[in-house]
Design a protein around this nucleic acid. Structure first.
Lengths: 269, 269
DNA sequence: CGCAGGATTGATTGCATTCAACGACCGTGG
DNA sequence: CCACGGTCGTTGAATGCAATCAATCCTGCG
């Protein structure tokens, strides 16, 4: 079902180094590493995979055997309730590591699925665990990334628990914009391609697709957002943040973390 | 406001070792440590504090200077939205470490408050960071504890995002019971003292206090719970779990983790 | 061209909120 | 000892936000 065959992604072959450099960059944005640590990371063995949209990266109940880094494309974490409804827990963007959550535990408590066509780099679990034990600084860097993900999840609890539909949607749009921007993948002025359907947006915000549609339309009518198909931009970024009760503190972005758009690696859908 | 004076907590003075032993026990339930690692943990400097109910352990925006271990009593993590409503993100029980979340980040993205009278042990941040860098295995153990907290938070997103009021309440009660039970602080048969008001329960489940009250009454009427003031027990534990769509997988409890009630340290309220 | 998934719209329902008042319990102080 | 105040719990009535049900409209794609 998965293991997508070659798709149009430019002419050049992807070198084996690039994914680890992306990973290293993300690790280092928060905690500096010695050159030995950096080398150790760049020497990690990896395997590249291409995946279609809607492929499973992790299934709930899996025993994780590798940690995968999202090189390009988007994915989301999810859990399903007993009555079959789905909750999206997080959206992963290029540069994110998928399996820190599961890797140090025995069994995956949630699933991860791709949103679109995706390239991932798998790092064997044991190699990563060995790295962490031998090079504590890399462990701290991983801890740091993981804690930021936790912080984002805390904000999601608030979003889903205590905000009305309008704020929830505005908030998630703001979060998405800022996270993409800090990786040089979008810019709040010019907007970006939203990789989610309205139903997925609904599952992320604890609403129904129908209601998401209505809220989006009303945000559009108020000129807080502007949509052309999936492409979305924010004519009044300030007002959108207010509507979403958004402030970026919980993303723990320091100024130096931002990757200028020119330097960015492109998301190949 | 805080720094509660002596309260009745038995006659004996609390020895300085005990809190670190509690901490060590929790760390070890998931990842075994060498005797050197154990010694290093037991040698950590700590300071004990007694706190009244409703004291702040951490304020949103604080720069954490120590990590505190909850020795006895309960606390909760919270965030407040722009319009002033509160969301409770997690309930901390004796043995939990409060500040792993914040310690490796620069600034606290959420607050922590005590639910009742509490004893905490502060470990200076630098000592803990030094420990982690010198003894990677302790770092892994801390990572492990942190990831379980993340897993619980994921389940909370689902609870608040995708379950109706009845299930949310039943679920949180189940979670509470199981977590207390594994630390030998309660048992699902005989019940336990619920340390939260209905308003706090509401803020944890994304509901209103009024509605929590109605749901509790209806659960009572169905004989899924039994309440005498704050004391709660579960006449039909199986049915309650069903009502709450609860299964304990996400708590990542292995059989060996459970502390028999006899060995347990008592929660001194 | 026709199909399928996604987006849109309307009408209706219902769960949870809101507002408001009252009751029960507990600790405190006169 | 009892009166008092405050917090928490309980209840009723009315409102409203979002869900549900159902149909239709797009639009990209085979």
């Amino acid at each position: 079902m998965n293991l997508a065959p070659a798709h149009t992604c430019g002419s050049s072959k992807i070198s084996i180094e690039e994914p680890l450099e992306i990973f290293l960059r993300e690790l280092q944005t928060h905690s500096p590493l010695s050159s030995d640590d950096r080398d150790a990371i760049l020497r990690l063995p990896i395997r590249l995979r291409r995946l279609d949209a809607h492929s499973y990266l992790v299934r709930e109940g899996d025993i994780p055997i590798h940690c995968c880094i999202l090189v390009s494309g988007y994915a989301y974490r999810q859990k399903v309730t007993g009555d079959g409804s789905r909750q999206i827990l997080a959206v992963c963007i290029p540069g994110d590591a998928i399996d820190f959550q599961n890797m140090f535990l025995d069994i995956s408590d949630h699933g991860v699925q791709t949103l679109n066509r995706t390239i991932v780099a798998d790092i064997p679990r044991e190699d990563l665990q060995r790295l962490v034990l031998r090079r504590p600084a890399t462990g701290s860097a991983i801890m740091h990334m993981t804690l930021i993900e936790s912080s984002i999840m805390r904000e999601w609890v608030v979003n889903v628990g205590r905000r009305d539909a309008r704020s929830r949607i505005a908030h998630i749009l703001c979060e998405f914009a800022v996270r993409l921007e800090t990786r040089g993948l979008a810019d709040t002025k010019s907007g970006f391609e939203l990789p989610m359907t309205q139903e997925q947006l609904a599952d992320a915000t604890g609403l129904t697709a129908v209601h998401v549609n209505r809220v989006l339309k009303s945000l559009q009518a108020e000129r807080l957002i502007d949509r052309q198909r999936r492409y979305i931009s924010f004519p009044d970024w300030r007002a959108l943040q207010d509507a979403g009760d958004f402030s970026r503190g919980y993303l723990h972005i320091s100024d130096g973390d931002v990757i200028p758009p020119s330097r960015s690696f492109r998301a190949r859908t």
